[in-house]
C-alpha cells in the first residue's frame, strides 16, 4: 500500500510499499518517530485517509474496494480511538457511547443495556450522566474506548491513544486495553512513539521509518536484537537513561 501527499511545491511520499499482516486477536504495535508515517498508516486502515494504491483487507472484507455506503457499514465494525479523544461535548458519556449504536439502528432498549455493560467494563458506570468536559483525560479516553467498543468491532485502531496522558494514566489505559483484548479476543492495532506502550501490551510490532516498514516481528526482538535504525535509536535512548540511573543510584550491574 502506498500513500502520497501532493503539496503545491512537491510530492511527499508518506507511505511506500507497506505490507503488513496482523493476526486476529493480536495486539500489534507500530512504532516510529514523529513524521515517520504512523498516523497516515493507521488512518488508511479505515480510509480516513485514502491510500493511493494497494489493498486493505480487514476481517475478510476488502476495505479499499468499497464504495461510500459499504465503507460506512464496514466502519461500524472497526473501532477507533484518538489521541485527542474526540468525544462529543454536547452529549453525555452515555450518549457518546450510545452514538455508534444509534448510527447502526439498534433498538433503544438494547442500546441501554449494551451501554451500561460497556461502561461497566471500562470502569465508568457511575459517570454515565456526566459530560466529557467534566472528566479527566484518562476518563475521557475510557469513554473513547467504550464508544469504540460499543458496536462490537472486529478490530480496534488506536491512534496514539495514550500520548496525551500522564504515565500513570497511560498505564491504566494500557491495562484496560490488555484486559479487553483477553476478555473479548479483540484485535488491537496501535501506533505509538512510546516504548513503554510497546513493551507493556504488544505481542507483535512493526517499525516504520520514512514511510517504510523496516522491521517486523515479536516485541522481544525489538528490545533484544534491534536491526533498523529507528529501533536502535529507541533502544539507545532507553539504555542511556538506564545507565544514568545506574550511576546515580550507585547500584552497578
Amino acid at each position: 500500500m502506498s500513500k502520497m501527499y501532493i503539496t503545491p511545491s512537491s510530492k511527499i511520499v508518506a507511505l511506500e510499499n507497506v505490507n503488513l499482516q496482523i493476526q486476529q486477536g493480536d495486539i500489534f504495535g507500530i512504532i516510529g518517530f514523529s513524521g515517520a508515517g504512523k498516523s497516515t498508516l493507521i488512518r488508511c486502515l479505515n480510509r480516513l485517509e485514502e491510500p493511493d494504491s494497494g489493498k486493505i483487507v480487514i476481517a475478510g472484507q476488502e476495505i479499499t474496494a468499497m464504495n461510500k455506503k459499504e465503507l460506512q457499514l464496514a466502519r461500524r465494525k472497526i473501532g477507533m480511538i484518538f489521541q485527542q479523544f474526540n468525544l462529543l461535548d454536547a452529549k453525555t458519556v452515555f450518549e457518546n457511547v450510545a452514538f455508534p449504536l444509534q448510527v447502526s439502528n439498534y433498538p433503544k432498549k438494547q442500546i441501554k443495556t449494551r451501554v451500561e455493560e460497556i461502561l461497566e467494563l471500562v470502569g465508568l458506570a457511575n459517570k454515565s450522566k456526566a459530560y466529557p468536559l467534566q472528566l479527566s483525560g484518562g476518563q475521557k479516553q475510557r469513554v473513547g474506548i467504550a464508544r469504540a467498543l460499543s458496536n462490537e468491532p472486529s478490530v480496534l485502531l488506536s491512534d496514539e491513544a495514550t500520548s496525551a496522558l500522564d504515565p500513570q494514566t497511560t498505564y491504566s489505559i494500557l491495562e484496560l486495553l490488555k484486559d479487553i483484548n483477553q476478555k473479548l479476543g479483540l484485535t488491537i492495532v496501535l501506533i505509538t512513539h512510546e516504548l513503554d506502550v510497546l513493551k507493556h501490551i504488544c505481542n507483535h510490532m512493526a517499525v516504520i521509518e520514512h514511510g517504510k516498514i523496516v522491521e517486523t516481528g515479536v516485541v522481544e526482538k525489538f528490545f533484544l536484537n534491534p536491526e533498523s535504525d529507528t529501533a536502535k535509536r529507541f533502544i539507545s535512548i532507553l539504555q542511556g537513561f538506564q545507565e544514568k540511573r545506574v550511576y546515580k543510584e550507585g547500584e552497578g550491574i
Binding site: 457499514l73 466502519r75 477507533m80 485527542q84 474526540n86 455508534p100
Partner: peptide, 18 residues
C-alpha cells in the same frame, strides 16, 4: 467544531446527514 469530532463520527460509520 474540531474536525477530529467529525472524523470520530465518520469512523463509526455515520452518514453525512447524521
Amino acid at each position: 467544531v474540531s474536525f477530529g469530532k467529525i472524523e470520530a463520527a465518520m469512523a463509526i460509520g455515520a452518514n453525512p446527514l447524521t
